[in-house]
Amino acid sequence: MLWLDDLTCQSDDFRLRADLSLAPGGITAVIGPSGAGKSTLLNTIAGFLPPASGRILWDGDDLGPLPPGKRPVAMLFQDGNLFPHLSVERNVALGRDPRGKLDADTRATVARALARVGLDGLGARKPGTLSGGQQSRAALARILVQQRPLILLDEPFAALGPALKAEMLDLVAELARDQGATLMMITHDPEDARRIAGQTIVVAEGRAASPQPTVEVLDKPPPALQEYLASSA
């Protein structure tokens, strides 16, 4: 279980408060106006930003002292999720052995993961030779071999077209469910949330609200979200 215990995130002169918990295994959308602090929240959980105050607990353990790589977190960023000079296989293998070793065992795991995301046989290619959708799949394959219980998505599919994005969301939901992982995903699009997220956290006006069922949030949005949803509709 993820527990944000009276957490204050801070980035430059901007603050966000969060006091909430997420039950394990679900998919949670994080929605709110641009600049409200959605990325700041995820970056703080992932360990890229130190909290201004409060604690981040995973199954009762304080994540505060841990660097990003030692946290139970796998994260996909908006861009730069693959090293462009390494083959897809090596990129994915880094999720299992960050020192870059590629033994037979790792190769087999990577091959299985690539097959799982539909990239069978493309392991030798460089990311630059793949389409946008295939690059997303490769990044998901790495998430798969990382085997971390908490997956954070900071809009990694934002650059894809609507159909492809939906396909990726379905795939990521499926992978998370198979792994029993907890998934948090930032989105701008209420339809994304409806599609895969059972619950939604609204981030607005300096506060990250407790998760509510997505259908309720979107059908009866709180005032802070109304304006944003209206303007994006």
Binding site: P67, G69, A74, R99
Partner: peptide
């Protein structure tokens, strides 16, 4: 790429080399 390296727990040696 620093964030991705840190996310993957690469450590400075592998990040430098890879």
């Amino acid at each position: 790429h620093g964030r991705l390296g840190a996310q993957l727990d690469m450590g400075r040696g592998p990040f430098f080399r890879l």
